[in-house]
């Protein structure tokens, strides 16, 4: 099945295409990043932080967008009307799975409509895990008098990265 002629003709061609080589190198770099993710905890940590919008710098977070990550990790979220610890829930079972980037439950249109239409404070807890690494983040969405919300990251975070 392997048609080496297809690629060897590219390699043998005298006319070089620098942009083509740069894109190949870029794809190769991403592939290496992805293949090492299960074995190098630092890579998975970067990705988990990326999923929770907790990368220390926006630029570093934004630079990772070309890395494809559909349906990655076990991501869960929970939305509450009261601050964590304020009311002990008898049944703490309202966790749902999100396919990827669980913070989008807060920022994307469907989540905003479902959870933030009431203009009342809400507390979001996000959990993501990947091969023994775990990240939990809490966000307070504070309703603003003029409409909309202010997102506040709650410091007491749990992680085992």
């Amino acid at each position: 099945m392997v048609d080496l002629n297809d690629t060897s003709s590219i390699n043998n061609e005298q006319q070089r295409d620098l942009s083509f080589c740069c894109i190949l190198a870029f794809i190769g770099l991403i592939a290496v990043w992805l293949l090492l993710m299960p074995w190098i905890p630092g890579i998975a940590k970067q990705s988990l932080q990326r999923f929770h919008l907790r990368t220390p710098s926006f630029s570093v977070w934004a630079a990772q967008f070309p890395i494809p990550s559909m349906y990655n990790f076990a991501n869960q979220y929970k939305v509450e009307q009261y601050p964590p610890g304020f009311v002990m829930m008898i049944l703490d079972e309202n966790w749902r799975y999100a396919n990827h980037f669980p913070a989008r439950v807060i920022t994307f249109f469907a989540g905003r409509y479902n959870f933030l239409s009431s203009n009342q404070d809400r507390w979001f807890t996000l959990k993501s895990s990947y091969r023994g690494q775990f990240l939990e983040s809490k966000f307070h969405l504070e309703a603003q008098a003029e409409g909309g919300y202010k997102l506040i990251r709650i410091d007491e975070i749990e992680e085992s990265l």
Binding site: D6, I30, P68, N72, Y130
Partner: peptide
Amino acid sequence: RRAAFLSRLIISMILLGGAAGKWTPE
């Protein structure tokens, strides 16, 4: 030929991105 090679390389990488994040017990 180059365009087709690049296209299948991109598709492979995107599918690999989906796979790598799913190598989990869940």
